[in-house]
Design a protein around this nucleic acid. Sequence first.
DNA 1: TTAGGGTTAG
Length: 450
Amino acid sequence: MLKMGIKPDNFTYPSVLKACGDEFDLGFGRELHRSIDASGLEWNLFVQNALVAMYAKCGEVELAYDVFEKMPEKDVVSWNSIISGYASKGMWPQAFDLLGKMRNSNTPINLVTWNTIAGGYFQAGNYKDALGLIPQIRKHGIHLDSVAMVIGLGACSRIGIVKLGKEIHGYALRNGCDGNESVKNALITMYSRCKDLRHAYSLFRSTEIKSLVTWNSMIAGYSHSDRYEEASFFFREMISTGIQPNYVTIVSILPLCARVANLHHGKEIHCYIMTHGGFKDYLLLWNSLVDMYSKSGKISEAQKLFNSMNEKDKVTYTSLIDGYGMQGEGQIALKLFEEMNNCGIKPDHITMVAVLSACSHSGLVSEGQILFEKMSSLYGINPRMEHFDCMVDLFGRAGLLKRAADVITMMPFRPSAALWATLIGACRKHGNTDIGEWAAKKLLEMKPEN
DNA sequence: TTAGGGTTAG
């Protein structure tokens, strides 16, 4: 268009900027920004809003704010764009500060504003807070739209509260949103994640035009419920209807492959990825493969794959560390942990579980203890329940039953029945009746949790 | 024309 000498106008720039945001093409976005400044359209509200949104989507909230701040006139889209930028980065103080300023500016808050906050909560894993917004929205007399429902259903499926999910389903039926594809897929996910496979299945079968996401929702749902046969059946049915799987399909089905007795299915999928294009850029996918081989005890396959990867993150390392740990190769696991730290990849609480359990399976008592004690000072990770579980197991396996018992007594969490059982098992193995009986008594005293 | 959403690994 430019080559033909046609000048972009106040309609062209927002559309192209939106595309930049969707593709995270910051380079082209900045180029457009320079071109806008030279075009005389730099004060157009639509153009400015689109610039704010583009920078926010590309993760450049400061640049987004620079544009936003200088805008002489702001509308609800401007505010929503900048709030969304901060919320998606988890910068909550800034997001809420702006929400307050938006209220003071007499710009009316609309459903998109609410959905932005709810979506931010969802991304941060605050599913309860996301759900808590629904009654607030309704209190303002605003009707939920499909986006609000999808977020609400997503939160229900993560927490596993089918009752609230059903209420949203009812709301969708009453408001004619049940035919919306996204709502349908979110409903399938909600029911299947809440282990109500019957409802998930009937919704799926009643969907006439099934998109890739519909199939993925179903496969992920059954996979999540450990139903390999059905998940695999849907996978094959999907391919037979001419729909090609994408990386989400593969990532959904791989964890199940590790759990079935032979690795045939997992290898088949690995082969599929190698022979079909379009998968190489998804780290998530390669991590799932490393994890599958690790969990299946094929540690040399996992290592081979790991070596072939150009990009690795903490999940790649954690999967391999976990694999070596399960094989009783604690020293190798610790070497990998050291390597990841040297590479500047920060471990998180799941990495620590893998490392500590590797120590426990290989009898590396002092190594495990040192790592546990230095977890928060060295890596900034506060010990969680599962780390204490690892320590009880570590001492228990080594026959240091008094120290295992001390961990349970001192830990700032309510010990689970399984943890008492771990200690009792260790006492039995090492012939310690005193601590064993004490633990058994504690286990029997436990009140059932509500 | 510009803002929010569904399937996703350790």
